[in-house]
């Protein structure tokens, strides 16, 4: 082995110095990191399975909705193929949330972060490049999952009038919005991961925000909580997964009067991501790694 020492370092005298640290190079590095851990493949598989499988399953359930006499919804309630997406997204989002958190907390729990910050000692670029890779990959994956689900739904249940009708423009927006929502939830989880630097803490926080707090808020009969509820990341972000008609129906039923439109709701979710990410960035710059 010691013979290799003698031959190697002469290389630098002749070969040109390798490239500099650039954002494009950092993205390439993060891309390699992203795909070279098992958790990515695992969470992605579970995510696809959840979205595609649950959309088909819930479509079947919608088709078998009991009649009003058997305790079903009152006659005249329109059946929509999009109804199957809400529960699928509700569960599928946690796979991407775990992926988002692990993207950064995996580095803190293993110590990898020190290698990452040594390679990019200005630090913030590490955070941004990770966020870009995660955001782009999860958006493409979520769009693919939703697309596959819609195609299979049309294939199996089109005959029963349960295919998504893309000619209504708010339907297409709702489907794309579903993918956008899922990718953004993954980024929110990533932001909490960067802030808390601990896998379990980050996943617990995102579960609490998406799952536990909305239930608690709706159960506790204290009026101010009802005003906060529409601005929670899950409720606000899911506006963009609904058609305009569904949003209108929901706002009519609501007594709170928050009445967010699809993009306003999504804007609230983005604001959550930005705020948490900015706090994480400030702390990343200040804290010892």
């Amino acid at each position: 082995m010691s013979t290799a020492v003698a031959t190697e370092p002469h290389r630098h005298a002749t070969a040109p110095k390798p490239g500099k640290l650039t954002f494009a190079h950092l993205l390439r590095g993060e891309w390699i990191k992203f795909w070279s851990v098992r958790s990515t493949a695992w969470t992605m598989s579970i995510f696809f399975l959840a979205i595609v499988g649950l959309v088909l399953l819930f479509t079947l359930a919608v088709l078998n909705t009991p009649s009003p006499e058997d305790g079903g919804p009152p006659a005249g309630t329109p059946l929509s193929p999009l109804d199957a997406y809400t529960p699928a997204v509700y569960l599928g989002q946690f796979a991407l949330a775990v992926l988002g958190a692990l993207t950064i907390t995996g580095e803190y729990t293993t110590g990898m972060i020190r290698s990452s910050l040594t390679a990019a000692p200005k630090r913030l670029a590490v955070l941004w490049s990770k966020a870009v890779v995660l955001g782009v990959v999860t958006l493409v994956a979520a769009a693919a999952a939703v697309g596959i689900a819609a195609a299979l739904q049309a294939l199996f249940f089109g005959g029963q009038d349960m295919a998504v009708d893309l000619s209504e423009d708010s339907t297409l927006r709702a489907l794309f919005g579903t993918a956008l929502y899922l990718a953004t939830i993954s980024l929110l989880s990533f932001a909490f991961g960067a802030l808390l630097r601990h896998s379990a803490a980050a996943v617990a926080t995102i579960l609490g925000l998406l799952l536990v707090l909305p239930i608690v808020f709706s159960l506790v009969p204290w009026k101010p909580l009802q005003y906060i509820l529409p601005f929670m990341p899950g409720a606000a972000g899911q506006q963009i997964t609904m058609t305009d008609a569904a949003i209108e129906a929901q706002n009519t039923a609501s007594t709170v009067g928050a009445d967010l439109t699809a993009w306003q709701g999504y804007g609230v979710l983005v604001a959550w991501v930005v705020i948490v990410l900015v706090i994480a960035a400030v702390l990343l710059k200040r804290r010892d790694a």
Binding site: K33, S39, T110
Partner: peptide, 25 residues
């Protein structure tokens, strides 16, 4: 540096590739 600074789930080669890629190596 003293403590291990490597993601335990990644192969040695991919670890080095990721670090090298940040500088276009």
């Amino acid at each position: 540096l003293e403590a291990k600074a490597v993601h335990t789930g990644r192969s040695a080669r991919n670890h080095l590739r990721a670090i090298a890629a940040t500088h276009g190596i």
